[in-house]
Amino acid sequence: MHGIRRVRQTQEERQASKRKELAKIEEFNALTQRILARKKGNDWSDEAFQLTTKLLQINPEFYTLWNYRRNILLKGKFPNSSPEQVHELLEDELSMTMTALKVRPKVYWIWNHRMWCLEHIPKGPASDGEPGADGWKQVVWNKELFVVEKMLDADSRNFQAWNYRRFVLASMPTPRSESSELAYTSKKIEANFSNFSAWHQRSKTLTSLWAQGKLDESKSREAEFELLRNAMYTDPNDQSVWMYHRWLVGTGGGKDVLEREISAIQELLDEQPDSKWCMESIVHYKRLLLNNYAKDVDTQHLTRDCKDLLERLETLDPMRRLRYRELAGEIGPSTS
């Protein structure tokens, strides 16, 4: 970095550093071999369990160790434990993986282990005020929702955390209202329009609400278009917004909606003449008009417009030149 003086190591220091690294590698390999030997021998002991803890702290992406660890729990620890003790063991596992996630928040196998832990929480006593409800599971799931929200506060685009959130929401003993989830995605999107995972979660939530008749589909779709127009003008180069726009149009965009959205995007393109996403989207929607409403539109005019835009895109985005030429060929010849 600028302004920071680089300290040169002596040859002895470099050699010492190299020896230290080699020693770490040798220790890691030796520990790995010890654990794999125990796994091969179906060792479900507490000592084997502690060894997996040690190695997973070094390399949490070692999925074979996570599998072995779960087998030790299932075959070595759970059979000799009461439901209360199983619950405590799984709480310890959640704490252990939380420590790992603070350092490696996007490692799939850590999140996967948390899912497994939740799925194996034993049936517990009823929670206060909810006769017959499974108190342990309700408390744990509520805590997990809080944990994943904290993780998303730290990195709102962590797709592994979003996937885990969807798992938690789908599995909660007392379901969270989807209206609340829609509000949550609104908060995340308003904080950062580039949050593709939040847009994706929003699409899943809206689809469910519409299917259940819990939300006026026509009115909410128009509200989404308005939200998108604000996002487009805020950052016309944000891919997340355009992808969501295509999803929304695809959920029920007839000829009138296509023409309206093309007109709105054209207004933005007039202000941002080098916007690749504006051009690509106009071509995409005009092709939909050509493919689905050929009898009701001026095909020659639409074809010419698409080809002109694709030529501009070739210049603007030369890395995808062949793709734009392929699209132009699919549209067919235009007539002047």
Rank of each mutant, 00 (worst) to 15 (best):
G3N: 09
V7P: 05
Q15P: 00
K18H: 13
F28Y: 05
L31R: 15
S45I: 02
E47D: 12
Q50P: 07
Q57M: 07
Y63T: 14
Y68L: 02
R69L: 09
R69T: 03
I72R: 05
L89N: 13
L89M: 06
E91W: 15
K102D: 13
V103F: 09
P105A: 01
V107F: 01
K123M: 00
G124C: 05
P125C: 13
P131C: 08
W136R: 07
K137V: 15
V139G: 00
E149H: 10
D155C: 09
N163F: 09
R166K: 14
F167S: 12
S171K: 14
T174Y: 05
S180V: 03
E181M: 04
S186I: 00
K188W: 14
I189M: 03
A191C: 07
A191E: 11
A191D: 12
A191Y: 03
L209I: 13
S218T: 09
K219N: 04
R221M: 11
F225E: 13
E226F: 08
D235V: 01
P236M: 05
V241W: 04
M243G: 11
G252N: 13
G254N: 13
E259W: 10
S275K: 05
M279D: 11
S281I: 01
N292V: 02
A294Q: 12
H301D: 03
L302F: 00
R304L: 13
D305H: 14
C306N: 00
C306I: 00
K307F: 08
T315K: 14
L322H: 07
Y324C: 07
R325M: 11
G329E: 02
I331G: 00
S334A: 11
